[in-house]
Amino acid sequence: MANSDRVKVRIPPKAKKGEIIEIKTQLSHDMETGLRKDAAGRTIPRHIVTRFTCTWNGEPVISADWHQAVSANPFSSFFAVASASGKIKLTWFDENGEIFEYVHDILVD
């Protein structure tokens, strides 16, 4: 899967082995709560991202379960230990079955 154009990241291109790096990322998504009404008074159906995961060379770094109170265009920031050169993979799962993915190549020396 190609990197989603709805994902923005700030992750260093390289790190020293054992260094703790910060991963900042944002997905463009309405995170519609299901509580809002449109101009005609009809409820806008709920449509949110319910799960987010980050892996480093396939090993889980962090994952999260999200509910309606996570803001639109969800931003997240967290940390990871630089273990080895390879791929940091970020994945968002929304409740309509859509998956957004971003893979970042990192060099660890």
């Binding site: 770094v61 962090i62 309606q68 967290f78 940390f79 230990v81």
Partner: peptide
């Protein structure tokens, strides 16, 4: 319930940030 974060030793630091309603 706003969010639940599941960390591992690979997280390195027990700190998360996001934006909430």
């Amino acid at each position: 319930v706003v969010s639940s974060w599941h960390l591992t030793p690979r997280s390195g630091r027990a700190e998360i940030s996001f934006r909430m309603r």
